[in-house]
Every structure is written in structure tokens, then in C-alpha cells.
């Protein structure tokens, strides 16, 4: 495993344990998980006990010690999504992928995560696939999305656009604009 990037990341911050969290975040971003060798290297460079690094790596949910699948599906279970049926979406995706939240499919294609609020409550229930939001989910739509992803094509599943019936523009010249 090539750990040059880890060294570069640490060099960018300076070898101080106060930056450990940022270093781990960047490693996670770089490799999509925290390789054990990278953690061991970081512990040495930052002069931290390996146990402390391991503790951080397992404490924060942003980190994973296992490689993630090609598609990381995050089903939002924030409060807003929950009251709109987020749990049912998760169940549907679990059923479709035949894995539980927190697992990766055996072919390495999908990782499923249940997350708490991605901050886009208005679009709930929401499923994020590799940082791309899929809004207004229903269990049926979620299943479809997975099938599409597995087949390699992604169609946006979106809210119906505003009705296009009222096409007649209003002439504003009769109504002078305010402000």
C-alpha cells in the first residue's frame, strides 16, 4: 500500500497531535476508508499512541476501517425524514440489497449506511448516493433507484415539476413593480 499521500497530508498540517482529527478526515477522503497501515503511520508521525488513533477512528462515524463499496448509499433517518417514513425507505433498500445498514454487498458494489440528517430536510425522505441527493423517496422509488444503480444507469428520481398549465405571462407594465 502506497502511503505517500498519508505523509503528504501530515506534512501539510505539521506533525502535531492537535491536527489528528483533520489528518484522519483527509485520509478517509483519500482512501475512502482508514487503512490500518495509514493509522499506524499517522500514530508514529503525530507522536500519539496507536490506541488513541484507533479510538478516534472508531468513535467518529465519519470514519470507516473497512473499504466502502462503489456506491455508498446513505439513507437519512433524521427526524424530518423519520416522520416522513425514512425507516421504511431503509427497510426497502435493505431488502433490495440484502444487507443491513453498515454493511457492504459481497460484490463490493454497494455500501449501505443509515445516517442522521444530511441537512436537507425539505427534500425528505432523502437518500444520498455518493453525495448526490435523491429526494422525496418512497420505498418503491428507492428500490427502483437501487436496481438502476446496479444496472449501471442513474436516472434522477425527482419531485414532479411545477404544473406547466398556467403559461400565460402577466404583463407587468400595468402593475408597476414595487421596491
Amino acid at each position: 500500500m502506497n502511503l505517500d499521500r498519508v505523509n503528504q497530508i501530515i506534512n501539510g498540517y505539521g506533525a502535531d497531535r492537535a491536527v489528528s482529527l483533520a489528518v484522519l478526515q483527509d485520509i478517509q477522503r483519500e482512501y475512502n476508508y482508514l487503512p490500518r497501515e495509514a493509522l499506524e503511520l499517522a500514530a508514529g508521525r503525530l507522536d500519539m499512541p496507536l490506541g488513541e488513533i484507533y479510538r478516534m477512528a472508531t468513535f467518529f462515524t465519519a470514519f470507516s476501517l473497512q473499504p466502502k463499496g462503489e456506491y455508498v448509499c446513505k439513507v437519512c433517518l433524521g427526524t424530518a425524514c423519520h416522520v416522513r417514513g425514512g425507516a421504511r425507505i431503509l427497510e426497502a433498500v435493505e431488502r433490495e440489497l440484502d444487507i443491513k445498514a453498515g454493511q457492504t454487498t459481497s460484490d463490493g458494489k454497494f455500501s449501505l449506511e443509515a445516517v442522521r440528517c444530511v441537512g436537507a430536510c425539505a427534500l425528505g425522505p432523502i437518500v444520498m448516493v455518493n453525495e448526490e441527493p435523491h429526494a422525496y423517496m418512497t420505498p418503491d422509488k428507492a428500490s427502483k433507484l437501487i436496481v438502476q444503480l446496479a444496472a449501471g444507469k442513474v436516472e434522477r428520481v425527482e419531485a414532479p415539476p411545477a404544473p406547466r398549465s398556467a403559461r400565460a405571462p402577466i404583463d407587468l407594465s400595468s402593475v408597476p413593480p414595487a421596491g
Binding site: 411545477a162 398549465s165 398556467a166 403559461r167 400565460a168 405571462p169 402577466i170 404583463d171 407587468l172 407594465s173
Partner: peptide, 13 residues
């Protein structure tokens, strides 16, 4: 076309 050039609102939006 409607709003920026002709200064009219597009009501459906």
C-alpha cells in the same frame, strides 16, 4: 426571454 428582456413574470415558476 420573458423576465430579463421583456420584464414580465413567468407565472408558472
Amino acid at each position: 426571454e420573458e423576465t430579463l428582456i421583456k420584464g414580465r413574470a413567468v407565472e408558472r415558476l
